[in-house]
Amino acid sequence: MFLAWNEIKHAKLRFTLIIGVMTLISYLVFFLVGLAYGLAMDNRTSVDKWDASGIVLTDESNANINMSMMPRSLADDVDADEVAILGQAPNVVRKEGETGEDAKINVTFFGIEKDQFLMPDLIDGEEFTEDYEVIADISLQEEFGIELGDVLKMAGSELEVEVVGFTEDAKFNVAPVLYTTVNTYQDVRFGQIDESEEGRISAIIARDESFSDIELDNEDLRSYSIKEYIEEIPGYMAQVLTFGLMIGFLIVIAAIVIGIFMYVLTVQKSSLFGVMKAQGISTAYIAKSVVAQTFILAAVGVGIGLILTVGTAFVLPATVPYSTNIIFLAVITGMLILFAVLGAFFSVRAIAKIDPLEAIG
């Protein structure tokens, strides 16, 4: 460590460039991790909010809630500790009095029963008490300036809803969720209200000790665990796999880049290492110095990249789907440093092959 640190202090410019490359690569990796995690969570936060064991859809819907439609009476065919009905409908809304493309907001309506467990916790305002009142995800306020009491008009119809409360972490398929009554959902989706047992809904959400305890008494229904259902959300797995591969390749590239830098430096210093060997300094000591040097460079570079990422997260606008996950950052940090150190072992092999007599002269 003594030799490694002193060499870094002696050749500041050379090693600053290496640290700079490591900083930029780690900053890119950390930022992509935040974007990937943010996009993934924007697809599923409202589903996680259910805290449920499973979801029941029609068998013909192929796990797509947009294609699932059933009478609300089918909730009696689901045997679980707790059962809640859900109507889901995507729509476009705009604040009353505003016009233009920028005023349009993609949202998802969740029609729920107020006394069932799908009712979200509020961070502002109050629960809906009648039809055409909604509880909105807080992103509508942060990104679009929607406030309590604002009226939202539906696209393509004369329907209007009033925002009476806000909740957090309620997005579905990247769109903010508006929680409302089942009657309102039916009017939004079908243009009419049906309060009978044959009134249509989209899904039945079930809570039980485990998913395997949920039983169905209807062959036209199919149950999915929450994990299975999330994986079937359109675009979710494609995003996760795409970003996962990008991040994995970047980590490997970072290891290769730092390994190449250290190998080139080792070759350039072969005569110096030859002199050191001739003076009786062991190959193991020199190799440990190179590995320690790589660790220092990687740790400093990754650390600066991490600081830049955290700083960037504070100044990003709310419209950017970025989210920080401490566990992911810790794992990626460890992997970047580990792979960089492993890349340095190519230099160790070069050191072992140095002949003192040939290197000196």
Rank of each mutant, 00 (worst) to 15 (best):
V161C: 02
I304Y: 04
S46D: 14
F166S: 01
Q141D: 11
I256W: 00
M1D: 06
I205P: 05
E158T: 15
M69N: 15
F110K: 03
S347N: 11
A155K: 14
D59F: 12
S46Y: 05
S347R: 07
S196Q: 01
G149N: 03
S289T: 00
Y224V: 06
V83Q: 02
A203V: 12
A284N: 01
A330W: 11
Y179D: 00
L148E: 06
I105W: 02
G334F: 03
S347D: 08
M154K: 13
L122N: 05
A203H: 04
F261T: 10
Q268L: 10
G100N: 01
I123E: 05
A11H: 11
L152H: 03
T99V: 04
F2P: 00
M41G: 02
A89K: 13
L148R: 04
A155L: 07
F31Y: 14
N173V: 13
T45S: 11
F339Q: 09
V134A: 00
G191C: 10
V47Q: 07
A170G: 05
G145V: 12
P321C: 02
D48Q: 05
K104Q: 13
S139Y: 04
I233A: 05
N62C: 06
Q268C: 03
I193V: 15
T324K: 10
W50A: 03
D355Q: 03
S61E: 10
Q88G: 07
I327V: 15
I337R: 10
A254C: 13
E215K: 15
D81H: 06
D59Q: 15
D48G: 01
F314M: 10
